[in-house]
Each structure stands twice: as structure tokens, then as C-alpha cells.
């Protein structure tokens, strides 16, 4: 792609950054996976582009910040969307920020996810790499205060928008696992997230009960005694 440069190869797409119609743009190219059967690859690519677009739009309508879509092209296997030049991932943020900022972040993530689930949107791949923290003042300062920062949810390729309690619980469980394997802060990020989740999702009790069930079957605990 002319004028676009490859900035990252994620798990299932290449990300290119450049300018489209005069605005900073990110192109997410779900390139052909040669290891998969072509039929399967084609089906998955289309399914995921559609799921991503659908979830991004639904998030927008309920007031969750996601990248603005500029162009969706199934033949080119690509989505053109808003690029956030002044942003870091939550993962990076947690590595660099102090405990009190991490606490605020956890609270914000929890509220965001509560709202998302209250609107029956399931992300499907929640990790700290899939949450961006962007500075609204368009400067590269992140670790002083949370005031001008906003959260942007990205990577909706595995999402769906018709959901059950089980789906919500699994969504949270996937996030818990991702946090445990990536972060070792003394502050318990996941507990912070759950506490704030309650504020935005009235049905949190059902979800949390289900989460306990999912946790119990997900990890085979040792049977001692």
C-alpha cells in the first residue's frame, strides 16, 4: 500500500499506518494465512471483519470509545480506521505507571466493560494489549494524571453482539487469565476491574456467579486430601 508503513504484525493481521483522505489512518489487513485451508481462512476473515465492524458500531451507539471506521473492504481483507498517534496500550501503561494510576485505570476498565456487557457486546479477546489509552490533548504524556486520558477499546475480531451470561463470564475470565500471565502488580487489577464493573452493569451478580463457575472448570485445581 502506497504511503502506508507496516507498524505491527498482530496475531491475525498486519497493521499499516498512513494517511487516508487526509487523516491519520490505521489499516488492519487480515492477510491470507497460508497455514489454514483456504476455505476456512476465507470464512474466518469475512466473519471477523464483519464482527469487528458490527461491534465497533454498536459500541459507538452506546458511548464506548472505539476507532472510527473509514472504509471496510472485504476483497482487500482490510478495515481502514482512525489511528491514535498519542496513545499507549494498557499493557505498556501498567508496566510504567505508579500504583495509584493503575488503580484508576482498573476502575475505568471495569466501568467500560460493565457498560459493554450491559449492552450485550462481547469482546471475545480481552487483554491489556487490546485497550488503548489515548491522550486527548494530543501529547505524549501518560503517567502524570488520568485527567486527559481516555480508554479506547480495539480488536473486536472475535466479538459478537448477541450474548448470554456465560459469554460475559468467559469474556471476563479471558481477561483475568491475560492479566495474570502478563502483570505482577501488588495492586489486584482484576479485583479493581470487577468492583467498577458493578457500577455499569446492573446484572453483575449473575455474571459474577457464572464467572466463579467458569473459573472452577477452567482451572483444574489440585486434589489434595
Amino acid at each position: 500500500m502506497e504511503g502506508f508503513k507496516l507498524i505491527k504484525q498482530g496475531a491475525e493481521s498486519k497493521l499499516f499506518q498512513g494517511s487516508y483522505l487526509g487523516v491519520p489512518t490505521l489499516v488492519k489487513d487480515r492477510f491470507k494465512k497460508k497455514y489454514r485451508h483456504p476455505t476456512l481462512d476465507d470464512t474466518l476473515m469475512k466473519e471477523r471483519i464483519k464482527a469487528e465492524v458490527r461491534a465497533i458500531l454498536k459500541c459507538k451507539t452506546v458511548g464506548i470509545r472505539t476507532p472510527t471506521l473509514y472504509l471496510v473492504d472485504l476483497n482487500r481483507r482490510s478495515i481502514f480506521m482512525e489511528y491514535f498517534p498519542y496513545s499507549v496500550t494498557a499493557k505498556e501503561f501498567i508496566f510504567n505507571a505508579n500504583e495509584s494510576l493503575i488503580e484508576v485505570l482498573s476502575h475505568c476498565i471495569g466501568k467500560l466493560l460493565g457498560k459493554m456487557h450491559a449492552n450485550n457486546i462481547i469482546h471475545g479477546d480481552l487483554t491489556t494489549s487490546n485497550i488503548l489509552i489515548s491522550n486527548k490533548q494530543k501529547i505524549d504524556i501518560f503517567y502524570e494524571s488520568f485527567q486527559n486520558l481516555e480508554l479506547i477499546l480495539i480488536d473486536f475480531g472475535l466479538s459478537h453482539t448477541d450474548s448470554t451470561i456465560e459469554d460475559k463470564a468467559v469474556d471476563l475470565y479471558v481477561l483475568e487469565r491475560a492479566i495474570l500471565s502478563t502483570h505482577t502488580t501488588t495492586y489486584n487489577i482484576f479485583t479493581g476491574i470487577l468492583n467498577a464493573y458493578k457500577i455499569e452493569n446492573k446484572n453483575y451478580k449473575e455474571v459474577f456467579n457464572k464467572l466463579e463457575e467458569v473459573q472452577a472448570r477452567g482451572r483444574k485445581r489440585t486434589m489434595v486430601g
Binding site: Q9, G10, A11, E12, Y35, R36, H37, L40, D125, T127, S129, A178, S181, T182
Partner: peptide, 19 residues
């Protein structure tokens, strides 16, 4: 085999990208 392995390879790739 194609389907099951594609799932395994994909999740491995996710772990690679994430870590």
C-alpha cells in the same frame, strides 16, 4: 484435522503476539 489444528496454531500465534 485442518480445523482443529488451525485453532491450535491460531491460539499459539495469539500467545506469541501477546508475549
Amino acid at each position: 484435522q485442518e480445523t482443529v489444528f488451525a485453532m491450535l496454531v491460531e491460539t499459539t500465534e495469539r500467545a506469541l503476539a501477546h508475549c
